[in-house]
Amino acid sequence: MTATGASLGSTAIEGKLRSPARPYGKKRSIMPGFGITFGFTIFYLCLIVLVPLSAVFVRSAGLGPAHFVDVGFSARAMASYRLSFGAAAAAAAVNSVFGLLIAWVLVRYEFPGRRLVSAMVDLPFALPTAVAGIALTAIYAPNGWLGQYLEPLGMKVAYTPLGVVVALVFVGLPFVVRSVEPVLADLGHDVEEAAASLGAGRVDTFTRVILPAIGPALLTGFALAFARGVGEYGSVIFIAGNMPFVSEVSPLLIVTQLEQYDYAGATAIASVMLVASFALLLVINLIQIWSRKRMAA
């Protein structure tokens, strides 16, 4: 459903934007390799992603619609979606602010150890999520490195929904930094200088000139961080506390269903999550393509 509608939408956008301003349509013939690269892309995509994912949907379809709704939208499942999607959104928001700041600092300023810091940003991609979860729990538990100072202030991080957010901030940070960094680097100073010469202050220049230019990239970073956060399991189970209705994330609920040999129930919850994440990613990618074309035009 979603997919067809979206693909139509995207076609319309592409069609409208293939305007005379970018006349590469007619030169297309000289560029070789479309058949093989496109064919291989689709083949590999089907093999690795689409066929396996369809197995999830087919299995959940075996439940029948009524039972699917019972399992996929039970009170407990809804509570877990609220936590998974809510914490992922909060973490992605935090990452958007600080990720942008970090990208800015890395691109614009020169300071000792800049390259090392830049390399470190990718750490969450590389560190196994379970290790990250254990390390974060060790830090934020009430007797942990930081937890022991936060506890007296009444701030509980580990074993609360806040702990989930902390884990997801860790997991999602590089997505934002790496999305924004190249665009920020490419952004010439001339626009800013023009704005400044017209009397705009630094803050004005940022909100009116820079932010709109990097907006799409920031949005991509947000979407990727968000999508990654929604599905995160390994780091979250250690720090979440896992109380049903309070700190139980959706992937854990899937595991719980599996423990009862209820594959159909597990795939029902998985399907709901997949459709939601996919719809979100699609919308954001379309916005991005659209704004890219608009800027180019």
Partner: peptide, 11 residues
Amino acid sequence: NVPVLDSGARG
């Protein structure tokens, strides 16, 4: 009275 519900005994 349970504050944390781990998924396994060792946890």
